[in-house]
């Protein structure tokens, strides 16, 4: 059985102007030791889907799903108290902004030991030893000294390492990294990604990498899920996705990569992601799609089968002859 199984997950926010569906029928499944890349533009609901999984959304959010199970437990029916025993222990998450994700009033040592005490019940000495070990593992120099530092005394990259150390402190089965490198310098980005993949390899945990950087996905992920306007539009193993994208949105994203540019001007996708009030009637991508047909503007396409990468498209691209037939 898969470690993580999400089927038809939707998240709606109550706003003063009605409800807004941030995630619309998200699905994925993930086995132990797998790396899933989730890509999409800002506002495509990629973070929200996983915050919903962690139970970290504000009370204005309504979460519905046909299946939401982790490690054999149904997260839909679980109490808040039981959920708190899972998150931070078996399922951990790191965030985009390392500088603001750590509490400025406490030392990083205090913050990492908190998780160790809560989930593993270690005594003070064991906590200290484990914290030092974790800091070494994530490549923080002079760990004993750094433990008593406050977040504002460390750089962004260091803070992200602290966040990672905190997330892996209880040896989680699943680590969700929500744009872990977006706020960092390019050189630091590479280091953090390397660290994440190395940790994933060593511990065998599953890793979800939420990003809008196709390059990051190509280097690290095993399979890739592409999100658009709250929907998953395609999911394929990484090599297949880059070789034969089936959804026009994926194809457009890939052709916008500088490495793939064929002309002097980088191709772009015209328009913006639809918001709360301008959702198209048919396919959500239809106003921006280069291959749009009349049917796309009226009928929303259902997800396809595995042979087309579950693409939500009436006219998937790059089909082999027998698939077309």
């Amino acid at each position: 059985m898969a470690l993580l199984e999400i089927r038809n997950l939707s998240v709606e926010f109550k706003t003063s102007s009605g409800s807004f569906r941030a995630v619309d029928g998200f699905e994925t499944s993930l086995d132990a030791g797998e790396i899933l890349g989730v890509v999409g533009e800002s506002g495509s609901g990629k973070s929200v889907a996983f915050l919903a999984l962690m139970g970290l959304l504000p009370w204005t959010a309504t979460i519905t799903a046909d299946q939401l199970s982790f490690d054999g437990r149904d997260l839909r029916s679980i109490s808040a108290r039981e959920r708190r025993r899972i998150i931070g222990k078996d399922m951990a998450m790191i965030f985009q902004e390392p500088m603001s994700s750590l509490n400025p009033c406490f030392t990083v040592g205090f913050q990492i030991k908190e998780a160790l005490r809560r989930h593993l019940g270690l005594d003070a000495r064991a906590r200290q030893a484990r914290a030092v070990e974790l800091f070494e593992q994530v490549g923080i120099p002079a760990p004993e000294k750094r433990l008593s530092a406050f977040p504002h005394q460390l750089s962004g990259g260091m803070n992200q390492r602290v966040m990672i150390a905190m997330a892996i402190s209880c040896k989680p089965k699943l680590l969700i990294a929500d744009e872990p490198t977006t706020a960092l310098d390019v050189t630091i980005q590479a280091q953090i990604l390397e660290l994440l993949t190395a940790l994933q390899r060593d511990t065998g945990m599953a890793l979800v990498l939420i990003t809008h950087d196709m390059g990051v996905v190509a280097e690290t992920a095993h399979k890739v899920s592409v999100q658009y306007a709250g929907q998953k539009v395609e999911q394929q193993p990484v090599a297949d996705l880059f070789a034969t994208p089936h959804h026009p949105y994926t194809a457009a994203l890939l052709s916008a990569l500088p490495e793939r540019a064929v002309s002097r001007r980088l191709p772009t996708i015209p328009g913006v992601v639809p918001g709360q009030f301008d959702r198209p009637q048919g396919c959500l991508f239809s106003p921006r799609c280069a291959h749009v047909q009349d049917r796309c503007r009226t009928d929303p396409p259902p997800p396809g089968g595995p042979e087309t990468g579950f693409a939500r498209c009436h006219y998937p691209l790059n089909l082999t002859q027998e698939e077309k037939a």
Binding site: M54, L56, R83, R84, R85, I86, I87, G88, K89, A92, M93, F95, S101, L102, N103, Q111, E114, A115, R118, H119, M163, M166
Partner: peptide, 8 residues
């Protein structure tokens, strides 16, 4: 959010 994510 981080503190909540720790399961506190």
């Amino acid at each position: 959010r981080t503190a909540r994510a720790k399961g506190l």
